[in-house]
Design a protein around this nucleic acid. Structure first.
Lengths: 182, 182
DNA sequence: GCTACAATGTAGCGACCGCTACATTCTTAA
DNA sequence: TTAAGAATGTAGCGGTCGCTACATTGTAGC
């Protein structure tokens, strides 16, 4: 990796921190630049345009999320669906994840609006989560990929409901779909 | 309802159409005003500020969604969880609903960012959907409210996954959590 | 008809937006 | 040492933003 790439990575790290704190929508070049000690002029110089900067930034943030989850999710197989979901939920419920959720909804909004770049990034984030679920499901699941996809839907729904204040009630009810936790 | 309220309702109807077409984030006064044949000046005059206008608009849009769902969801009880979810999904999958999904993610983004107004509106929309589910679940459900909440999470997760291109795979897998459709 | 007030048009303020032209400084290879 | 190109600062363009001051028109009660 040459110096240019290293510099870009450093900028992306700083901007990611800023976006995770202040949200993606409404993030404009001048505050972003100030957060990393440079100017809007230089951000355009390095990334070409704001659109390309945002794309790089989202990929970078998705990578950070993946690293975080990898570091905090035990790689062992669960004994049950409920246990599997509970472990993922425990990781996703930490305070450090909330800023990611904020950005996640921005990605979903753009994707639903038709933005192909953000839809692709969102697709990959979900594919990544799906992969984790597949690897952590109990071995006696007959159709692990499909089961993981269904559990993923449940988890994403919990994230949504949590955003509007139904999180606790929803989390307390999922055992009705998943059976006992043991 | 006096003439003032009627005029406001007409404005809200027109603006709702515009927002459902073009999205909530980025909706600014001048295009909004143009869409209903008036001026930004008059929108501020009628609603006081943009924030209050958006609040009225979201409540109005939520009401329209509720009307649409009420009109299209049969009020009979389902024979199974799968059938219940399938019926709701059929309604939510219609093309007319896609614009609402766009606005829905904008609401979630604002709610996650801490906006109390949009969080409240989102909470109420989900509470409304939850109520429908409770009334449509089979009578032999032992804990209908909790079951409905879990199903609601599943449905919202499907909406999310659909936005990023995993919709079909997810919809095809939920029978693994819900059992057969009969 | 007059008056009071609601409704609306016109114009613009100050701030911010993404982006660029131009000049300058810094670095590096010949 | 010098020439070339990369990196950066300064200033500003044309546009949009929410909002407001001010003047004008419409309207309804006395």
């Amino acid at each position: 990796m040459d110096a240019t790439e290293k510099k870009k990575l450093k900028l992306l790290d700083g901007m990611a921190t800023h976006v995770l704190e202040h949200g993606l929508s409404g993030a404009s070049l001048r505050p972003l630049a100030k957060a990393v000690g440079t100017s809007d002029r230089m951000l355009i110089y390095h990334f070409g345009s704001k659109d390309r900067l945002i794309e790089s930034l989202l990929v970078h943030i998705a990578g950070k999320l993946k690293l975080d989850l990898d570091a905090n999710l035990p790689p062992r197989r669960a004994r049950s669906r409920m246990e599997c979901v509970a472990e993922i939920l425990a990781v996703l419920s930490r305070a450090e994840i909330a800023p990611f959720a904020r950005v996640w909804f921005d990605i979903l909004s753009a994707a639903q609006k038709g933005d192909p770049v953000q839809k692709r990034i969102g697709h990959e984030i979900m594919a990544s989560l799906h992969g984790w679920l597949v690897e952590r499901l109990a071995e006696d699941e007959t159709d692990a990929p499909a089961t993981a996809m269904a559990l993923l839907a449940l988890i994403e729904g919990l994230v949504v409901l949590n955003a509007v204040g139904h999180g606790e009630a929803a989390a307390a009810s999922i055992h009705l779909l998943l059976g006992p936790s043991a």
